[in-house]
Write a protein that binds this DNA or RNA. Sequence first.
DNA 1: GATGAATGAGGATTCATTCAT
DNA 2: GATGAATGAATCCTCATTCAT
Lengths: 204, 204, 204, 204
Amino acid sequence: MRRARTELSKENRKQFILDCAEKLILKEGLSKLSIERVSKRSKLAVGTIYLYFDSKEDIIAHLTIKSRDVLLKKFVEYTSNKENVLEKITEIPMAFYHFYKENPVYNQLVSFYETNSGLQENNALKEASYKITEVVVNVLKEGKKQKIIRADLNEIEFSFWLWGTTNGIIQLIEVKGNALTETLKQTEIEFFKNHVSTIIKLLK
Amino acid sequence: MRRARTELSKENRKQFILDCAEKLILKEGLSKLSIERVSKRSKLAVGTIYLYFDSKEDIIAHLTIKSRDVLLKKFVEYTSNKENVLEKITEIPMAFYHFYKENPVYNQLVSFYETNSGLQENNALKEASYKITEVVVNVLKEGKKQKIIRADLNEIEFSFWLWGTTNGIIQLIEVKGNALTETLKQTEIEFFKNHVSTIIKLLK
Amino acid sequence: MRRARTELSKENRKQFILDCAEKLILKEGLSKLSIERVSKRSKLAVGTIYLYFDSKEDIIAHLTIKSRDVLLKKFVEYTSNKENVLEKITEIPMAFYHFYKENPVYNQLVSFYETNSGLQENNALKEASYKITEVVVNVLKEGKKQKIIRADLNEIEFSFWLWGTTNGIIQLIEVKGNALTETLKQTEIEFFKNHVSTIIKLLK
Amino acid sequence: MRRARTELSKENRKQFILDCAEKLILKEGLSKLSIERVSKRSKLAVGTIYLYFDSKEDIIAHLTIKSRDVLLKKFVEYTSNKENVLEKITEIPMAFYHFYKENPVYNQLVSFYETNSGLQENNALKEASYKITEVVVNVLKEGKKQKIIRADLNEIEFSFWLWGTTNGIIQLIEVKGNALTETLKQTEIEFFKNHVSTIIKLLK
DNA sequence: GATGAATGAGGATTCATTCAT
DNA sequence: GATGAATGAATCCTCATTCAT
């Protein structure tokens, strides 16, 4: 049976498939993602999925790129809200935290790419990663110019360190979940904010 | 065909299977692990594997537990080498680092468990995790008693934070690899040691 | 998008599609031929291909017919070069041989048709085949009239035999390739010319 | 549902699968052969087929080897029936003919391997091919020793030529079928026997 | 006439798990 | 306890063909 040609543009259809895949990952986890499931969920034929994506991996790559773009936007949005440099820097890990909370799927995707050594990061992925680092570095440079941040700080190193540790803390929160909050008698966000204060302390 | 291994105790046989699985993961990655491959490598029948483990997942869980035990031993070993409390604490992330370098398979396993939200951490896994935290907490308490460490430090919180951030830094190193060292013009170990110094600074 | 090819006659368009298919077979083999690939190569829509051909099989059939036409022309060309009847007959298998060397695709096509019992030879194919036989028969008749060829020869039977054996020898050369030339310490063409001499011997 | 362990040995089961595949090729042609069809016909699970064969291609290769073995046995059988060398040689193409008539599938298989340049003949296949040539060469040598056959005959070349032309004639018969017999007003076997007489003539 | 998006059956292969021996 | 043959659902992907525009 033929599905009536919809008014959706090629790009919209692509996006629709990505959305379906995203919902599936959210519901069942990345490892359970399969083209057939995407096909059923989207009510498109298997072959149709392959009209828009080269392979299953291609879908995952697109979702990952999208996820990094969303993260980047979040960074820009959060930092542009604030005037003060230290506040800006505070906002960076907070942006990260909220991004993770709002996009649990994207977290899986990033982990997937960062864990699966088999998969090569393609250029689009690297590009997105690079832009994110850039935002952080620029804020740090501004801070140094304003003498708010220690002159001896290596922005790039710190930027990497910020990314790494924040990522680690978020993963910890995700994995330990209740165990963490119950043991510490803190909420997740309190624990995370302490992480942020620590970072700020190190900058002065 | 009779197996020469007949006289081995149940525990030894179990261990043998785990060793084979570990070697396979090291060689081909976790995703390529299959019972059939374990069967071939161990020269045991498929059915025999199932006498000792409930499922493939069970094998992975056991390997993960084993990995945490190894990590625990490493912690104990590294910290007991040193007299000075600050040195002890320095050794904790270093133990972590060397553990990762020496046990690339275990790293995959931990990531697997921490990434795959589908898999529930079972009690044995939680137990292993708990013991690791305990080692760290104890060292920190000792430091506080000796007034080497800030009195206001929440040992448990810091211990979690240490675990989370160190894990994140190691993952960063693994994922970014050369890109990191080339951009920073630092070796991996230099970058990691800076992370450790930062931690120590925060304790005083 | 409007095609510049609009003014082309139906026949020209058909020919163009066949040419594209032929190039694809030459490049990737008959088994890799697909309508989609033809569509891409010809820059025509998939549906357009189906306006000119009923099915993929139809395209292959047309190419096969075309191949037989080329072979027929080669026969006529080679035999008309020579005055002497025996020379003419010599040229027939030689024409065959050169045809195969120059048209490796057609060889695949003929084999395909002759091997795939599922495909029925349609009338056009039979027609082409018939004309080829006719050329041979006519030369043989001329030879008999000139008393150069044995009077008791059944031209039609011999013509079939010539076709069958020559085809077999060419296939042998193609399949055995180097193994043949190395074992015999002969070149392909020497082996083939011996085949031709044998045939001539039988005619006198 | 589990199929009761049959009394069939591993080799028998393998043979059974090959038999099923053979019947399918006979019925629907080689191009329609698929593992799923073999699975259905044999009433074995798909996975079971893969216990005995590495791939679909592996099945085809096995059938081809088997076919060449059958042909070889036919050669030996036919030639050993006769005392006289010329009779022996007569019997070689006749063995070929009867082999083809009795094993129409094998014909497809040999053509398949000889046509599909993509598939590499493995050693077992080459071995079978080689043995067949050897039988022919030996008979020819014997004939030369007995001075029944021309001393100047190159046995190996002739053996190749015999194989090539006979193969070609049999293919012709298969492809042209009725068209041939109707045009010539001969039966297939008459046409084939004329081919054999021609060959014998050339040997003296 | 021309387009190309959509279809979905079909195909090769893998693998966790079971169970008769 | 030990075996390993058997299972079959699941997975990725292809491609001839159709048909609304």
